[in-house]
Design a protein around this nucleic acid. Structure first.
Length: 149
DNA sequence: AACGTACACTTAT
DNA sequence: ATAAGTGTACGTT
């Protein structure tokens, strides 16, 4: 099946998504829109709803490689909470630095919530503007607050 | 195929 | 504050 692209608004940014029925292939952040739809869960997530995006499938998590293990571990960290590079490294049986590398190359942010991985002593890095990482974390905090009423 | 270097880190001086 | 340790990827021989 053919891969199609689409975008939706997330605060001040757009998120571009390339996907089809079976999986999500690429996600990235941009300042301009792109015609087309995105998967429903992503739309809801962007609207601030508490959605578990690890239900979405992606090639990245299937790989039987170190990165695959790292990505699967990252998908376990729940909406609204965070983990550290070191902790993920322990779970995946590798070193923190490698986790950073895997995050930097994550083809599907949001689906694999790399923004929830922070440094032991700070927020850590992000490929797109760091602003976005902060915005995502605060979006999730808000979503959680709203959900628990 | 080997070698050097670069990393979204961490831990111990 | 700084340095050493770390595992993988990537470009250059």
């Amino acid at each position: 099946m053919e891969i199609i692209g689409g975008s939706c608004r997330l605060g001040l940014w757009f998120v571009h998504v390339w996907w089809n029925d079976t999986a999500v292939y690429q996600v990235r952040f941009a300042t301009t829109g792109l015609p087309g739809r995105v998967p429903e869960p992503i739309r809801q997530y962007c609207a601030g709803h508490v959605v578990n995006l690890s239900q979405l499938n992606s090639i990245a998590v299937q790989e039987d490689t170190v990165y695959g293990r790292i990505y699967r571990a990252v998908q376990q960290v729940p909406y609204g909470s965070t983990s550290t590079y070191g902790e993920i490294a322990r779970i995946a049986g590798t070193s923190p630095r490698v986790v950073g590398q895997a995050m930097a190359r994550n083809p599907v942010p949001l689906v694999i919530p790399c923004h929830r991985i922070v440094a032991a002593g700070g927020i850590g890095g992000f490929s797109s503007p760091l602003e976005i990482k902060e915005a995502l974390l605060s979006l999730e905090k808000k979503g959680l607050r709203r959900a628990e009423k």
